[in-house]
C-alpha cells in the first residue's frame, strides 16, 4: 500500500512519532502534521491527504469540530478517529456526523496501518 498520503492530527508529539514510524515503514507518506483541530482544517485544504488520523481531545479546536469542518469541505474525507477511555460520548456524536472508523488508545503502529489499509481497500472494493 505505497503512496498513501497521511495527515496526523494530535496534540501529543509522541503519538505523531508512533504513527509516523509505522506509516513510513509501510511506505506511506506523511504529508502533514497538525497539533490541533484548527491547524488540521487549514492543512487539509492545502495538502489533501488520503487519510487523516484524528485525535479527539486537543486544545484550541477539538477533533470532533475539526472533523465536521473537514467533512463539510469534502464529504468523502477519510478520517480515522483516535479515542481514549472516557471519550465514548464524543464517539457517539462522531458516528452521527458520519465518521465510520475508530481506533482506541493505546494502539500499536501496526494497528494503525491495518486500519488505514482497510479504509483504502474499502473504497476500491466499492
Amino acid at each position: 500500500m505505497k503512496g498513501v498520503k497521511l495527515m496526523i492530527v494530535d496534540d501529543s508529539p509522541a503519538i505523531h512519532v508512533i504513527i509516523e514510524r509505522a506509516a513510513i515503514a509501510n511506505g506511506y507518506e506523511v504529508c502533514a502534521h497538525a497539533k490541533n483541530g484548527d491547524e488540521a482544517v487549514k492543512l487539509y485544504e492545502s495538502t489533501r491527504p488520503d487519510v487523516i488520523t484524528m485525535d479527539i481531545t486537543m486544545p484550541v479546536k477539538d477533533g470532533l469540530t475539526a472533523s465536521k469542518e473537514i467533512l463539510a469541505q469534502n464529504p468523502c474525507a477519510k478520517i480515522l478517529m483516535l479515542s481514549a477511555m472516557g471519550d465514548e460520548e464524543i464517539v457517539k456524536e462522531a458516528k452521527d456526523i458520519g465518521i465510520t472508523h475508530f481506533m482506541k488508545k493505546p494502539f500499536k503502529g501496526e494497528d494503525i496501518v491495518n486500519a488505514i489499509n482497510n479504509m483504502i481497500l474499502g473504497e476500491t472494493g466499492e
Partner: peptide
Amino acid sequence: VHSIKGGSSF
C-alpha cells in the same frame, strides 16, 4: 489529565 492518561498507556 486525560492526555496524560492516554499517553501513559502507550
